[in-house]
Structures are given as structure tokens and as C-alpha cells.
Simulated scan of single mutants.
Amino acid sequence: MASLPRRLAALVSLLAALTVCAACAASGPAASASSATAAPPLAGSSSTGPAAGSSAASASVAAHVSKLLVVVLENHSKQQALAQMPFLAAQADRYGVASHWYAVAHPSLPNYLELAGGSTFGVADDKEPAAHRLKGTSVFGQLTAHGHSAATYAESMPTPCSQTNSGRYAARHNPAAYFVDPRERAACRRHDLPAGTTASGPLHDAVVAGRLPTYSLLIPDTCNDGHDCPLATADGWLHRWLPFIENGADFSRGRLAVVVTFDEDDHHAGNHVLTVFAAARLQHKIVTRRFTHSSLAAAPSRLVGLPPLRHGAGSPDVLRAFGLR
């Protein structure tokens, strides 16, 4: 029989071997798997969103949108916009474009009223809200009356729901300010807001929080919308705002579609304007059917299952045409 000292030495050697094996197991495949499933970066970190083409990213994108944000630029035809706005043209190519889209009137205000209420209401000028006190329901009022959210974000507007021009803020580009029924006026004072910037303000906060309204209208000021400044300026403004919005949770998770259109052309193209649709699931989609601003007026109502207002009721369904609902 081995002596006691020799048996003790063997036992010590065995314990040492077991310790080494345990350390190997801890650093082996199980440990690697744990590292691979670490939590993704939190919103607001340096990450710009899910990796393109990853299965996890695809699985997290909603099949249909539940929110719509519309940006309205000014007074240029489709041909002019594509030729002078390379960033917007790239958005059209990447996501989608309605190739035969038409404004409904001249000058600006009737088109904005069509977008907000499904009608020009007989208006044929650009006068401020005091000259056109519109009764009845707007798209904003319809949605909020049925428990949905709606807002306007107007750049350079001095106070909520401002009724008069101020600097580069044009009241004629803010259609919610024209509707005078008490419910409409109350909603305007509460939800018709100065846009702020990509660094701070109501729109910034809603994008960062992933809490954009069901329907929102984003109105640049009269320089950034291409009215008083070159289209290159408007394109630069979009280049600041759209990537910021598209990196937000509403867009990247497929809840939000962004539409960029023009109120009217420059009187030389039959009111044929560029209208771009961007959504996480769209890839180089071209829809050739003829649409007007009436279809865009109807889109928020249809999105939540409500009847479109006025001319919108008989308009073709542009969201369905793009496969967004």
C-alpha cells in the first residue's frame, strides 16, 4: 500500500487538475455564447440603429405603419426638385416615389387646406386665418376627436397656433390655424407647435422618445421650404431632419412613414410635383398611379379606420398602393 505522504501528494495533484478544467470550462463556448447575447445599445447611444440586413432588425420592423409624418415644401415641379435636390432624390430612389402626383390649385393656401381638410373650401388666395374662418372638421380634429394624436410642427412659428405671419413663419402654410370650431381651436393651441431643431424642441423630443403622433405635419420656414431660398437650402434642411427622424424608433421599427411633397409647382408643369414616401420596409418602390393632395388628406383617416373627409373620400388609397397598410 502507498504511504500516507504519497497518497496526500496524489490527492493534491488531482485537486489541481480539477481546478484547471473548471477554469477552461468557464472560458469556453458557454462563456462565448453569453457574450454574444449581450444587450444591444440603449436608445440615445452612439449606435444609429439595427444593423442593415440583420434578421433581428427585419423581425422587429412592423408589417404596416401606424403613424404618418408629412413634410411640405414649396413652389417647385417634380423635375426641378429631382434636378436640384440630390438628397431628396436619393431618398426617392432608396424608399419610394409617387411618379404622377399633382397639387390641386394655385396659390399655396388652397393646397394646404386640401391636405388638412380634403377641400380648398373655395379659398383662392394666401390671406391669413382672420380672412378665412373655416367651419367644420380638419384631419387633425377628426383624429383627436376619436382618441388619436395629431400635431403640426411649424418652423420659426413664435407661439403655438400663431394666426399671423412673423419673420420666416408664414401662417398660410399652417392649415390647422384656419379652423375655428371650438374643438379645433383648442387642439390647435395645444398641438400646433413651434418645431424647434434637431437638437431640441417638441419634434426632437417626440422622435427621441419614439412617441410621434399618429399624424403630424412638419412645415419648414419660408427659406428652408424652398420658397424664398434655393432648393439646395431646402435639400440641406431635409438632410438634417430626415436622417434624424429615420434613426428614431418610430421609423426604424416600421411604425412611421414619412412623406415629402410640394404644395404646388412653379406654374410651368401642370402642378406635377415630387412626392416621396419613406418607410423602413420600402425599397425602391415606384407607384405610377395618378394621385393628388386629396389622397394625402385621406391617408391619416384611413390609417386609423375613419372615413376620409370631403374630396378625400373618393381619392385612391395611396398608403395601400405603397403597401403601407
Rank of each mutant, 00 (worst) to 15 (best):
L324T: 11
A278M: 13
S99D: 14
T120F: 00
A186L: 01
R289Q: 15
F277P: 05
P182I: 06
T120Q: 11
R310H: 13
Y169S: 05
T198A: 10
A321C: 03
E184C: 06
A10M: 13
F179P: 08
L217W: 14
W101G: 09
A16K: 10
H191M: 01
L68M: 09
P307C: 01
P194Y: 00
T288E: 15
H284V: 09
R6H: 12
E184Q: 14
E114Q: 15
H239K: 15
A22Y: 07
H293V: 07
L18W: 08
D263M: 06
A25M: 07
R185P: 01
V71M: 10
A43H: 05
A31L: 09
V139Y: 00
N271F: 02
P29C: 00
H148I: 00
H239L: 02
M1T: 14
T137K: 09
V20E: 02
L8W: 12
R290Q: 14
P182M: 02
P86K: 11
Y215C: 00
A10H: 12
G96F: 04
R183M: 01
V65I: 15
H204R: 06
A89N: 14
A177E: 04
Q91K: 12
F121G: 11
C223L: 09
G226R: 03
A232D: 12
A234T: 06
C21G: 09
H191Y: 14
C188V: 03
R185T: 14
T197E: 06
L193A: 07
A105F: 11
N271R: 14
A98T: 08
N111A: 07
A195D: 03
F121K: 09
R168F: 04
A23N: 02
P29A: 10
P308A: 11
G141L: 03
T144S: 02
C21Q: 12
T19L: 13
L303F: 01
V304R: 02
R189E: 12
A298F: 05
S301Y: 00
N247R: 15
F87D: 06
P107A: 04
G49L: 09
E246V: 01
C229S: 10
V208H: 00
A150R: 07
S149E: 10
E264P: 10
A187H: 12
C21M: 11
C223F: 02
R172K: 15
H272I: 08
V208G: 00
P202L: 02
H148W: 09
A9V: 12
V123A: 08
P308T: 07
A59R: 14
L143Q: 08
S3K: 13
V20L: 13
S301C: 04
T233P: 00
P213T: 07
L42D: 13
Q142M: 11
R133H: 11
H239T: 07
L324I: 07
G44M: 08
F291E: 11
L218Q: 06
D221K: 01
R289D: 15
R320L: 05
V72T: 15
N75A: 10
A63D: 13
V61S: 03
F277E: 02
G236A: 14
G117I: 04
A22W: 04
S46C: 14
T137M: 05
C24S: 08
A154K: 01
H227C: 02
R289V: 03
E184Y: 07
A105I: 06
N224L: 01
A170D: 11
A98Q: 10
A150G: 10
H272E: 13
L134S: 06
A269F: 05
D192N: 15
V139D: 03
S108N: 09
G167H: 03
V61C: 05
S45A: 15
T37M: 12
S54N: 13
D225Y: 04
